[in-house]
Write a protein that binds this DNA or RNA. Structure first.
Length: 438
DNA sequence: TCTGGGGTCCTAGGACCC
DNA sequence: TCTGGGGTCCTAGGACCC
């Protein structure tokens, strides 16, 4: 039996979340900015109608234009988006026993066999409509649904669904089956899932311009040679052969343990001193290590990096350095100590630093710890300390307990700017929205 | 003045071993 | 004058995703 995949993707997710608790904004254009209020990362339908509005455009370049057009602007509010995402996924999970959460606002459902057990009188298209309507009613976020026999095709169908009025596109529907060829013609190769800037250039050199050209291109060996394994698999998926299966989350939780954990931020102002970099790195390590402990993992490899502002016409500097722990650890203190030594190696004075970051990798489960003969691993006391620190911080919020190297708030004047942030409507009691009955 | 952050996978090539 | 070949493992870098 052929597989049937549905891809459900929220429309302008961040902007839609901002509208959710602001009925007054329903009919107004809204955009959301990246960290540091740097670029536009989400624009609602109305905002997209303004020709100058494009994702990843620097905010300062378009600030006046947004003002003139009465656009409401928000800083990113990740606490809000993550919470709405959780509700969205919980609601979607009811439509199939097999689901893959692909990103904060997207999920694949395996619909194979769903309609043949007699309990539904729909076809897949109607089932897609039902999913869409249920989500919009229960969560209040508009979504689009793409349905097809492979994930790549479902992604492509979703893309077209975003443009049609119904918001659902079903490539398996017999009535429009003859149109699939025509549909694929409408999709530029660069819009296919997994085909980016470089690969689409290479495809164009072979006179492949749209998804249909790509599907029907006969020289598979050449595709393999130029686009490697993934490119060949994408082509195969366009032909209806499943190469990418559903990657299910562990049954007990909605998240897959990460294989690497990054924490980095652009500074709100230029930073010159090693002390300030050390404090910043200590803070990023604290964040990354908390995530590491939350997923019950240890890491063996730590990388830090520093860099200047690539958009500024100054002498550029980028450098990184790594170290490995003989025994895998998740102890914030050990990592901060190691990072400070790494910074000694890559720090150069007189440089205007704009960003730094840390990456934890070679991650393993807490349960499968390999002890080193030469270095003492985390003791039970260490583990308990970290555990209790996390507990206290979870309860009280705002990282009330931290390693001294993280500095005090007034020392961290380089922190990013977020001046247009909406309230944490759903995750902080003091910011709950109030409903007034007239 | 002001341009994000966090991930995954694949491949080539070096190091090392026998 | 002569200087192998094949396998595995690891890592850096590239490309892509949201």
């Amino acid at each position: 039996m052929p597989k049937i995949f549905a891809l459900i993707d929220a429309n302008s997710f961040y902007a839609s979340c901002e509208k959710l608790f602001r009925p007054d904004l329903q009919k107004k254009p809204v955009v959301v900015l990246s960290n540091n209020d740097g670029c536009i990362v989400s624009a609602c339908k109305l905002a997209k109608q303004i020709p100058q509005v494009k994702n990843f455009l620097p905010y300062y370049q378009i600030r006046d234009c947004l003002k003139e057009n009465g656009v409401e602007v928000f800083s990113s509010n990740y606490a809000l988006y993550a919470d709405i995402s959780k509700r969205l996924m919980n609601s979607l999970a009811k439509f199939s026993p097999e689901m893959e959460i692909y990103s904060i606002d997207e999920a694949f459902l395996d619909l194979s066999g769903i309609l043949s057990n007699g309990s539904f009188e729909y076809d897949y298209f109607e089932y897609g409509i039902k999913i869409k309507n249920t989500i919009e009613k229960n969560i209040g976020i508009p979504v689009s649904v793409g349905i097809a026999t492979t994930k790549v095709l479902a992604k492509a169908a979703n893309r077209l669904a975003k443009k049609n009025t119904v918001g659902v596109m079903d490539f398996t529907n017999n009535e429009c089956r003859c149109d699939v060829d025509q549909m694929l013609t409408k999709i530029d190769v660069s819009d296919l899932w997994g085909i980016g800037h470089r690969q689409s250039q290479k495809l164009r050199e072979l006179a492949i311009h749209n998804a249909r050209d790509f599907r029907d291109y006969q020289n598979i060996n050449l595709i393999q040679k130029k686009l490697t394994k993934v490119g060949r698999q994408i082509q195969d998926e366009l032909r209806g052969n499943v190469c990418f299966t559903l990657e299910k989350s562990p049954a007990d939780s909605s998240f897959v343990p990460r294989k690497s954990i990054t924490s980095s931020r652009t500074f709100g102002r230029p930073v010159f001193s090693k002390d300030e970099l050390n404090v910043a790195i200590a803070n990023y390590i604290s964040t990354a290590a908390e995530k590491l402990r939350k997923q019950k993992s240890l890491c063996r490899y730590l990388t830090i990096y520093v860099r200047t502002n690539p958009f500024k016409g100054i002498e550029q500097y980028y450098n990184f350095n790594s170290t490995s722990f003989l025994s895998a650890t998740n102890d914030t203190r050990k990592m901060i100590f190691a990072a400070s030594k790494l910074l000694d190696k890559i720090y150069r004075s007189g440089i205007e630093y704009k960003k730094c970051g840390v990456i934890l990798s070679d991650i393993s489960s807490e349960n499968t710890l390999q002890l080193s003969l030469f270095e003492e691993g985390d003791t039970i006391k260490d583990r308990l300390l970290m555990k209790n620190m996390d507990k206290i911080n979870t309860r009280n919020g705002e990282r009330i307990l931290k390693v001294a190297a993280c500095g005090t708030t007034d020392l961290c004047t380089w922190k990013m700017q977020q001046q247009l942030k909406s309230p944490a409507y759903t995750t902080r009691f003091s910011e709950l929205p109030i409903i007034k009955l007239c």
